[in-house]
Nucleic acid binder design. Structure first.
Lengths: 337, 337
DNA sequence: TTGTAAGCGTTATCAC
DNA sequence: GTGATAACGCTTACAA
C-alpha cells in the first residue's frame, strides 16, 4: 500500500496532537464514560483528521480475549464437486452476520486442521477464542477429545445429549421418522437409505427411518453408503446398485436434495420414475427441489436462526457458561415424489 | 478453557527451561539456520513438553506483515436461497488451500464491509494484509476506489484490462459468444439472456452474446434482468415473461446452471420443453447439469487453479509487484439442450 | 552460534 | 477526569 498520510500514526501521536495522554485516547476509542465530552470530541476529530486506525494486534496482545472465532467448514469435501447442498452456506452467512453484530472476527479454519491438538494450538496461539463447527462430519471422536481438553466450541449437526459438547441442529431422528411414515402411507416395502453414516447427523436420520421400518413387518431397509457425498459419486453408486438382480427399492430417503436429484437421474436410467415407480424424500428443501420435475418431497430444517444461536451459545461458553444443546424443528414437505 | 499445564507458558519460560535466551528460542521456532543442532533439539523438546504455543498477536505486532488475508464473499446474497451456484465455494476451497500452504490466515470479511474506506481501515488496523474478492458483484465502483487508494487486492470475476486492478476470471465474453454460436447453429432467432448485468462478469457474457446476435440479421436479443440471482425469483421472472403475449424465446442463455434449471421449470409451465422447443445454455457446469433431464448444455470454467492463482498474484502485490490479470479458458459443453 | 537491550502499540493499574 | 508507568510476548539490531 502506498504510504498515505496517516498510515503510520499510532495512539501516542494522536495523544500528543490532541494534548492528552495515551490512556485517554484509549478511553475515547473504547467509549469509556469516564471521559469529558469536550476531550472526547477533540480526540475523535484529531484521530479522524489523521486517518488513525487502532492497531488490533497490539490490542489483542494486551487483552485476554481475541474477539476472533474460527469457523470450521468441511471445505475439502467441497472441492471436486463433493458438495452436500448449498444450504451449509446459508448457515455460514448466518454465523458471519451474528459474529459481525458482536464485533467478532471470523477466521475460516485452514484445511489442515484435523486433530484435536491442532485446534487447541490455535487457541493457545491466541489466534482464535473458540470454534464453530458447521457439520460434524466424520469427526465425532476428535470433537470428544476437544471437549475433554476443555476447548470452547459449538457444533452444528446431530444433537446427541450423550455428547460432552454443545450442539445445535435439526431433529434428524424425527426427519428419518417422518420419511418412514410417508413411505408407510405410500405402501412401500423395499426402502433404501442413501447417505454416509459416518456423519452423526446422517446416522440419526437412518436411525429414525429404521425405527419406523422395525414397526412394520415386511418392510426391508437397505443402506447405500454414498461415502463421498458428491453428486456424481452418489449417482454412480445408485446406478450400480440398480444394475443388481435384486429388485429395485420402492422408496428412497436421500441425505440431501441434491442427492435426491442424483437418485432420480440414476433410476431414470433403468426406466423408473420417481412418484410413479417409487417414493423419494430428500433433505434441506433447497429452492430447486420445489420446481424440479417431479417436485421433490423433502425435509425442511430451520436454518434461519441457527447462526445466531450457535454464536450466542459459544459466547456463553467463553464467558464461563454451560449452554445446553438445542434441537430445531423439522418438517416434512410433501410434493410429487 | 480450563487452565491446563502449559497454557500460560511464554517464550521467556521456554528460554529459561532450556538454558538459552529468548532470541534463540525465536530462532529455533523460525527455523533459522543459525542455531546449533543440539540447541535446537533441546529447545524443541522443552517447548513440546510444556505445551508451548507461540503468541501470534505478539508476533504480528512486531512484524511488518500480518499473514492474514481477508476473503470477501457476497454472503448476503446467499441468505434466503439467493445463491448463484455452489461453484463459488469450490473457489473458496481453492483459496483456503492455497492460503494455508503459504501459512496465511483466512479472515472471512464481515458483511458490513461495503465502502472502500471500511476495507482500507481493515488494513490500517493491521487485521489483514490484503483482500481477495470472490465475484465482483455490483461493487465495480468501490473496487476502483480501493485500487486508487492503493489497497492490495485481487478479484475473481470479469477481467477488463481497462480496470486499475488485478483480476482473474474465465473468458466471459467468449462464453457469451460460444452460446451465441450454438444458437446460430441451432437456427434460433428469438434469443433471451437471463442475468443481472450489474455484475461485470455477467455483463461481459451478455456483450459476447450480443456480438454474435449483431452479426446475424433477423436475430433478436431480449434481456431479463434477474436481479436477485435467486432460484425462486429467476423462476418467477421467467414465468412472468412467458405469460406475455410476445412469442416465447427459442434460445435462452442463463447466468448459471441453477438458473438454467429455473428456466426449464418456468418454460415447462406453459408446456415448452428445453431441447425440443428451445435451446438453453447455462454456466459453470455444476455436476447435476450433466444428469438433469434434459441434460443441460453449459459453459465450463477452469476453477481448479483459480484459488492458487489468486493467492499467488496477491502475494506478488504484497511484495511490491504488479501482476497482470489472467483470463482462464472457457469451454462449451454441448448436451441435450 | 548465542546473548543483551530495545521497542512494536496497546491497555491495566494506580495515583492525583 | 486524566496522566505516568508498567506490562503484554515477541523480534530486530547489535555485540560478543
Amino acid at each position: 500500500m502506498t504510504r498515505r498520510r496517516g498510515m503510520d500514526v499510532n495512539m501516542g501521536d494522536i495523544a500528543r496532537l490532541a494534548n492528552v495522554s495515551k490512556p485517554t485516547v484509549s478511553r475515547v476509542l473504547n467509549n469509556s464514560p469516564l471521559v469529558n465530552e469536550e476531550t472526547r470530541e477533540r480526540v475523535l476529530r484529531v484521530a479522524r483528521e489523521n486517518g488513525y486506525a487502532i492497531n488490533r494486534n497490539a490490542q489483542k496482545l494486551r487483552q485476554a480475549r481475541n474477539d476472533t472465532i474460527a469457523v470450521v467448514l468441511d471445505l475439502a469435501s467441497h472441492r471436486a464437486g463433493r458438495i452436500a447442498d448449498p444450504f451449509i452456506f446459508e448457515l455460514l452467512a448466518g454465523v458471519s452476520e451474528a459474529l459481525s453484530v458482536r464485533n467478532q472476527d471470523l477466521l475460516l479454519s485452514p484445511p489442515n486442521l484435523t486433530d484435536a491438538q491442532s485446534h487447541i494450538d490455535l487457541v493457545s496461539s491466541r489466534v482464535a477464542d473458540g470454534f464453530i463447527f458447521l457439520g460434524q462430519g466424520a469427526r465425532g471422536l476428535m470433537l470428544r477429545d476437544l471437549a475433554r481438553a476443555g476447548a470452547p466450541f459449538v457444533v452444528w449437526g446431530g444433537v446427541d445429549p450423550a455428547e460432552p459438547y454443545c450442539a445445535v441442529g435439526s431433529d434428524n431422528r424425527l426427519g428419518g421418522r417422518l420419511a418412514g411414515e410417508l413411505f408407510v402411507e405410500r405402501g412401500a416395502r423395499r426402502w433404501m437409505f442413501v447417505g454416509n453414516t459416518a456423519h452423526t447427523e446422517i446416522e440419526m436420520r437412518l436411525a429414525g427411518l429404521r425405527e419406523i421400518a422395525a414397526d412394520h413387518p415386511g418392510v426391508t431397509l437397505e443402506h447405500l453408503a454414498a461415502e463421498q457425498m458428491a453428486y456424481a459419486s452418489t449417482f454412480q453408486g445408485v446406478a450400480q446398485r440398480l444394475r443388481d438382480k435384486a429388485p429395485p427399492p420402492d422408496a428412497v430417503f436421500a441425505f440431501s436434495d441434491t442427492a435426491a436429484m442424483a437418485v432420480i437421474a440414476a433410476f431414470r436410467e433403468i426406466g423408473l420414475e420417481a412418484a410413479r415407480d417409487y417414493s423419494l424424500c430428500g433433505y434441506n428443501d433447497i429452492p430447486p427441489a420445489a420446481h424440479f420435475t417431479p417436485a421433490i418431497t423433502t425435509i425442511e430444517q430451520e436454518t434461519h436462526l441457527a447462526g445466531a444461536l450457535l454464536v450466542e451459545k459459544l459466547m456463553q461458553i467463553l464467558e464461563g457458561g454451560k449452554p445446553r444443546s438445542s434441537v430445531l424443528p423439522t418438517r416434512l414437505i410433501v410434493r410429487e415424489t
